[in-house]
Write a protein that binds this DNA or RNA. Structure first.
Lengths: 360, 360
DNA sequence: ACAATTTCGGAAAAGGTTTTCTTTGATCGT
DNA sequence: ACGATCAAAGAAAACCTTTTCCGAAATTGT
């Protein structure tokens, strides 16, 4: 101990200048200084300038906590992820952050990793920080229990996850519509025997996309064969295995695959190639998620449904700001997906086109 | 306007209870209430209990902003990502959040997407919020300019990125050591003609890993052939292409590939299979990043160097807390990587083992 | 029973800002 | 030149806690 001149314990950094320092330097009272800096009140121009100059010289930056205390608006919101930040959450977060930052709102990031106790701790902490709003994301499979915010006191939005709280707003991609886009595209490019390989049936998204698939086939007068609908894991290995099943019997072999995600699609595409089938000439493939790492690395590159997560994040930010402003929004809102067409499903000529539908 | 009973503009939610309410309900002064709730001062047990009961009944939660104002410690830190949150940043963030949350510190997330102006705005905002510390992450390629925190006033750590600020602390994975691990493993399993396929030479990581590769070969008395070192992109396509180059001339064909990331490794592995070469019998493959999506989906699953990003994040949190506590830490700290052995390099029998070296 | 000590609880300042209300001094009208 | 009006700046309250200092009551010792 005692090496150097700083006392050794605690962060004894120089205190930042306060408005009191600014006022002193400008030779005015703190009230006047405040007015000058906020362009409010009625002051002589010369006085304003003097105060502003003093503030700049001191590198003054108003203490947001003191301001918030006064305004009882913290200008912060919490983002609570139930499962850990996954690949899907990123683009949402990014857009959310951008949107909120544009309104001067900062984000507290919390991650509860599916531990209810940690979730509660985080929530307590956020409540203590007097966040103006809360955004909850979770793994999509489960309809998560409502977050217990005391006294209905704060706007809450669930993004990419759903809650059973009827007063909350849930923002989700339109899985049904995404499936419709994919299947319509396959039909439009001449496919008639379209199979659907997807993930575990417990996921609501799986059900919804399947429904979109079935509905679209029906509307086109095509049969939805039971043996063309395969549930499994979200993995490439499952994609390969599913192709083996589908093509075991040449009689019922499909001429197109609509896959529940890009990993399945890529696995399927690999398996097709190894069977000597050409994508897209023999079999067209469309994936879901438009995850570039998968979709672009596949051979040929995969057509895929894009959930427009960036837009979802932006929408979440906008809704949250509206709710903080006093609007009451609730219910489930599903935002449209788009289809990105790449060679895996393209009739020669088309490539990398984006289609988009309305909410369906 | 005027529909319903709420005034219509602004978030007119019920105010949270303050300590003043608690004090009133317990029939004590606010000072006493504070002492009771913080287990400080000298109070009768009965009084404490009464106050605590009142607090619970009201759902009282102390206003962290008021506390911080008083203590001049905001119990928050900022995380500023220069490029947008990438795949590598996630595990770091996750561990960081966990570590800091354990100390009651919350995280402001900001993303500047390589825009210096946005970076400055975010920094201003964070400074206004009186964060206790700042953590900066960036794309690793460039040694980023130092963040301009006025007056050396606050602890700053660069994680997974490096700054030219000699006073800052930079936390990075030990790329050199990671490469050493990989190449030693390949040598230990009997390989003698080891090639290195990697990304663009501008990345410092590429240089360091290459150095580790060269050093290890030299130590083993093996030659580092220039035609066995290939720079390209970080993609599967480049991995495939590189294999074509390497195996064009059978005379110089390698018996092992050390790849700069898992995507390259996977592409290489695919290309080998398509050439009729078996992994690992004919050619062993080791990747870098241990990105499960790639490493596990490859056939066979890829051995890979793990940068232990989770540990890196945890270390960052711990260092930051130490610095906030008054310690001055600086310089560049490189944390060890591990090697995860999977079938792509395993001599039959070994599988999914982790090795780890000391800082090298 | 009285002074000395302890125990308990209250009052008030501090932390940094905004805003409302006053006050001061100047300008205007007649 | 005098009261009325207006502009400009200051004083103080409020936001919510914590903490230091004090006073009052209760306890102890003799």
């Amino acid at each position: 101990m005692g090496s150097g001149e700083d006392s050794g314990v605690g962060a004894d950094y120089p205190q930042r200048a306060t408005i009191r320092d600014v006022a002193a330097r400008a030779g005015v009272s703190i009230g006047t200084a405040s007015k000058a800096l906020n362009a409010s009140g009625s002051l002589r121009q010369e006085t304003r300038d003097r105060v502003v100059a003093a503030a700049n010289e001191l590198g003054f930056r108003p203490n947001a906590m003191a301001q918030s205390l006064h305004r009882s608006r913290s200008m912060t919101v919490g983002v609570l992820t139930t499962d850990s930040f996954g690949r899907f959450i990123f683009p949402i977060l990014e857009a959310l952050e951008e949107t909120l930052a544009g309104h001067g709102i900062a984000i507290f990031m919390c991650n509860a990793t599916d531990d209810p106790e940690r979730e509660q701790q985080h929530l307590d902490q956020l409540l203590g920080k007097r966040i103006d709003g809360l955004l909850v994301t979770a793994r999509r499979m489960d309809r998560r229990p409502a977050i217990a915010v005391p006294g209905k006191s704060m706007p809450v939005i669930y993004v990419f996850s759903q809650s059973d709280d009827p007063d909350a707003l849930c923002l989700l991609p339109d899985d049904h519509g995404g499936a419709v886009l994919a299947v319509e595209h396959l039909i439009a490019t001449g496919r008639r025997r379209i199979a659907h390989i997807t993930g575990p049936a417990e996921f609501e998204a799986v059900t919804l996309r399947h429904q979109g698939y079935v509905d679209t086939l029906a509307r086109a007068g095509l049969p939805a064969l039971p043996e063309h609908y395969l549930n499994g894991l979200w993995s490439e290995a499952w994609g390969r295995e599913a192709v083996d099943q589908l093509f075991a019997d040449a009689a019922t072999a499909p001429d197109a695959l609509f896959c529940g995600n890009d990993q399945i699609a890529r696995g399927a595409s690999d398996a097709l190639r190894e069977r000597g089938l050409t994508v897209p000439q023999d079999v067209a493939v469309v994936g879901f998620d438009n995850w570039d790492v998968m979709a672009l690395a596949a051979r040929p590159p995969l057509s895929s449904v894009d959930m427009n997560l960036h837009r979802l994040g932006r929408a979440a930010g906008e809704r949250l700001i509206a709710m903080i402003g006093g609007e009451r929004i609730r219910g489930v809102e599903r935002l449209p997906c788009s289809l990105v067409v790449r060679p895996s499903s393209a009739p020669a000529g088309h490539t990398d086109t984006t289609q988009q539908n309305q909410n369906s």
